[in-house]
Nucleic acid binder design. Structure first.
Length: 596
RNA sequence: GGAGCUGUGGUGUAGUGGUUAACAUGCCGGCCUGUCAAGCCGGAGACCGCGGGUUCAAGUCCCGUCAGCUCCGCCA
C-alpha cells in the first residue's frame, strides 16, 4: 500500500463526492474490457463502485488494468466524476458516479474463485463451507453478520442500561449428569480426568447471584454434543442472564422490552408489547407443540367424546387404551388426490401416527370418507361442526396416545399450512409459553427427568405434588416462541437446599450422587441465597429469524456440517500419538475418513 | 441409531442400457472507447463421488460405501 491511506469505502461514493480525489481499496467484482476503455467494479463490504481506466487518463494504470482479474485486491487513487449523460446506472447506489483511476496498485492477485461472489448463488453448501472466506464476501452474508453484530450490541447496551454486569464464566468446567452429552477436554495436569465444555453457564450464573452480583449477563458460547439440525449446532451462542429478587413477571416484562429493542435496532420492526401468553397445556391442546406457530389457524380439535362411541375400531380402540382422537381442518383441501393424502399420511407416520383418517366435506354437509359407515349421521354432524367444516374442506384425524396425536397433528398442521401457502412470511408472532410441567417421564430410563433443567423451581402451590404426583407439578419456567421457533427459555430457580434436594430425589439422583456432582451448589445455597431467576436466548436462532434465513449456519461465520465437522479446517482430526501419550489417552476406534 | 433427498467440466444443470457425455456460465486467447450479467470470434476443460456387481455394453440398473442437506430418535 506504500503510504496510501484509504479515504473512502467504495460503496459510499455518491454525487456529493464529485470532484474529490479519493484513495480506494477493495476487491475486483468484475472487469469489463472494451479495448481502449476498461471498467472495473471495485467492491468492499459497503458496496461497489465503478472504476474507469483509460489511456487518456493514465497509460500505466490502463496497462495494469488489462491483467487484473476477479477478486484481485487493488488500491487506487483517482477522481470521482459525474458519469457521462445516459450512462448512469440507477440500479446501483453508486451509479451516478465513476472513479477515474490515476494510479493503481495490485496489492494481491487471486485465483479464480470456485463460485460467484454475489447474492443468490446456488452452490453446494459443501463448497461454500470449504471456501467460507469467499462465501462471507457475498453481500448477504456480510449483512447477516452485521445484523448479528447489531443484535448482540442492542442486547448488550440494553442490559448495561438496566444494571446487568457482563461477566465471564469458565469454559473448562465439570461434567454433570442430566442434559445433553458433554464435550470433554482431557486434563494433562490431572491425568485421567476431564473437563467438560459448558452446555450453558447455568450453575455459575446462579452462584453469581449467591455472590450478590444481583444482575449478570453474558453473550456466551455453549456446547452440546448432540446430533445437529438446521437450527442446532454443537457450539452456539446464548444471550444468557440472571437476576436476583425477581419473579416470573419481572423477567418476562424486562425481556420482551429487550427483544423489542433488538428487533428495532436490527430490522426496524417494533413488535407490540406485551407479548401474548399461553400455557403449555393450551399450546399442546390447540397447536400440538410447545412452540406454537400462531401466524395461522388450522387449530387442533378434540373429538374423543364422539369417537369413543363410534364403530371405528382405530378410534374407539385408541380411547380405550387411554388415548384420544383429535383433528385439524385443512381448509379447502377437499380436492386433494389420493397421492396427496398418502403423502400426508406418510408425514404423520414420521411422528409415530399409525395412520391418518380423513373426511372430505361435500355439498350440503355430506361426507366423503372410507369410514363413514362407522359413524351415525349425528356424530358426523358434530365432528364437522366442531371443526367448522365447510364444503371443500379436508378433515384429518389422528388416534393414538396424547403424545403421538399432539406431535403428529402439530407437525401436520405446519406441513399442511406450508403446502397451502397460508403462512404470512412478514409476521413476527411472539408468544410466551408458561406453566411447563416440571418433570416428564422417560420411558427408556424409567424415571422422571427435568423438562427444563434440575434447578427450575416448582410452583409453590404444586410443591406437595412432588412426592404424590410428580408429573402434575408445574414449573416456574417460560419459553419465548416466535413463529413456531423456540428462541429463549428460562425459569425462576430453586434457591433453597432442601427443595433442591427434593428435586434431585424426584429425578432419581441418590443423595451421594447429588452431593458429589452438585454439592458445591447446595453448599452455596446454605450461605444466604437470594431468590433468583433468569433466561437465555439463542442468539443464532434469533438472528436467523430476523435475517429471514432457513438455517443458523447462514448466520454463523464458521458453522459445522450436519455431521459436526468443519470443512474449512477439517476439524476434528486425529492428533499425534505424542499428544495422546501426554494425556494418557488410548483410542480403540478404526478411523475412517481421516486422511489428510 | 434410523429414514429420505442429492452427488456429471471450476460452478449450476441436461443426459429412454448403446458412437466422440450436452447446455449455460466461468476460465484462456483475439477484437472492441461507455459498459455495468458488456458484446463478437476462437479455444481449453468432466471418463460422471468412491468400490463392487449384473450385462456383449453402465453416467444410466443392483449392492455397498463416502460426503452434503432435511427429518425421526437425541438436544435438562
Amino acid at each position: 500500500m506504500g503510504d496510501w491511506k484509504r479515504s473512502h469505502m467504495c460503496g459510499v461514493l455518491r454525487s456529493e463526492h464529485i470532484g474529490q480525489k479519493v484513495v480506494l481499496m477493495g476487491w475486483v467484482q468484475r472487469r469489463r474490457d472494451h479495448g481502449g476503455l476498461i471498467f472495473i467494479d471495485l467492491r468492499d463490504r459497503e458496496g461497489l463502485v465503478q472504476l474507469v481506466f483509460s489511456q487518456d487518463i493514465d497509460v500505466e494504470s490502463f496497462n495494469k488494468a488489462e491483467v487484473i482479474r476477479s477478486e484481485y485486491v487493488l488500491a487506487i487513487t483517482g477522481k470521482v466524476i459525474s458519469r457521462p449523460e445516459g450512462t448512469e446506472n440507477p440500479s446501483l447506489p453508486t451509479g451516478m458516479v465513476d472513479v477515474e483511476v490515476e494510479e493503481v496498485k495490485i496489492l494481491n492477485k487471486a485465483k479464480t474463485p470456485p463460485f460467484y461472489i454475489e447474492d443468490g448463488v446456488e452452490v453446494d453448501e459443501n463448497v461454500r463451507l470449504r471456501y467460507r472466506y469467499l462465501d462471507l464476501r457475498r453481500p448477504e452474508m456480510y449483512n447477516s453478520m452485521l445484523l448479528r453484530h447489531r443484535a448482540a450490541k442492542a442486547a448488550r447496551d440494553f442490559l448495561d442500561r438496566n444494571g446487568f454486569l457482563e461477566m465471564e464464566t469458565p469454559m473448562l468446567t465439570r461434567s454433570t449428569p442430566e442434559g445433553a452429552r458433554d464435550y470433554l477436554v482431557p486434563s494433562r495436569l490431572n491425568s485421567g480426568k476431564f473437563f467438560a465444555l459448558p452446555q450453558s453457564p447455568q450453575l455459575f450464573k446462579q452462584i453469581l447471584m449467591v455472590a450478590g452480583m444481583d444482575k449478570y449477563f453474558q453473550i456466551v458460547r455453549c456446547f452440546r454434543d448432540e446430533d445437529l439440525r438446521a437450527d442446532r449446532q454443537p457450539e452456539f451462542t446464548q444471550i444468557d442472564l440472571e437476576m436476583s429478587f425477581v419473579d416470573v413477571e419481572d423477567v418476562l416484562i424486562l425481556m420482551e422490552e429487550m427483544i423489542q429493542l433488538i428487533c428495532k435496532e436490527t430490522i426496524g420492526v417494533v413488535p407490540k408489547l406485551p407479548f401474548p401468553r399461553i400455557s403449555y397445556q393450551e399450546a399442546m391442546d390447540r397447536f400440538g407443540l410447545d412452540k406454537p406457530d400462531t401466524r395461522f389457524g388450522l387449530e387442533i380439535k378434540d373429538i374423543s367424546d364422539v369417537a369413543k362411541s363410534c364403530g371405528f375400531k382405530v378410534f374407539n380402540g385408541a380411547i380405550e387404551n387411554g388415548g384420544q382422537v383429535r383433528a385439524i381442518n385443512a381448509k379447502g383441501c377437499g380436492a386433494y388426490s389420493r397421492k396427496d393424502i398418502d403423502d400426508l399420511t406418510a408425514y404423520a407416520n414420521i411422528y409415530g401416527a399409525k395412520g391418518l383418517a380423513y373426511f372430505i366435506v361435500g355439498p350440503e354437509g355430506s361426507i366423503k370418507t372410507p369410514i363413514t359407515k362407522f359413524f351415525t349421521q349425528e356424530d358426523l354432524n358434530i365432528i364437522v361442526e366442531r371443526l367448522q367444516g365447510e364444503e371443500g374442506d379436508l378433515l384429518l384425524f389422528v388416534a393414538d396416545n396424547s403424545d403421538i396425536v399432539a406431535a403428529a397433528l402439530g407437525n401436520l398442521r405446519l406441513h399442511v399450512a406450508e403446502k397451502m401457502a397460508i403462512i404470512p412470511e412478514d409476521k413476527f408472532n411472539f408468544v410466551w409459553v408458561l406453566d411447563f410441567p416440571l418433570l416428564e417421564y422417560d420411558q427408556e430410563e424409567k424415571r422422571y427427568t427435568a423438562k427444563h433443567h434440575p434447578f427450575t423451581s416448582p410452583r409453590e402451590e404444586d410443591l406437595d405434588l412432588l412426592d404424590s404426583d410428580p408429573a402434575a407439578v408445574r414449573a416456574r419456567a417460560y419459553d419465548l416462541v416466535v413463529n413456531g421457533m423456540e428462541i429463549g427459555g428460562g425459569s425462576i430457580r430453586i434457591h433453597q437446599r432442601n427443595i433442591q434436594e427434593k428435586m434431585f430425589n424426584a429425578l432419581g439422583l441418590s443423595k451421594e450422587e447429588a452431593d458429589e456432582k452438585f454439592g458445591f451448589l447446595m453448599e452455596a445455597f446454605e450461605y444466604g441465597t437470594p431468590p433468583h431467576g433468569g433466561i437465555a436466548f439463542g442468539l443464532d436462532r434469533l438472528v436467523m429469524l430476523l435475517a429471514g434465513k432457513k438455517s443458523i449456519r447462514d448466520v454463523i461465520p464458521f458453522p459445522k456440517t450436519a455431521s459436526a465437522t468443519c470443512l474449512l479446517t477439517n476439524a476434528p482430526d486425529i492428533v499425534d500419538d505424542a499428544q495422546l501419550k501426554e494425556l494418557h489417552i488410548k483410542t480403540d476406534v478404526k478411523l475412517k475418513g481421516t486422511e489428510k
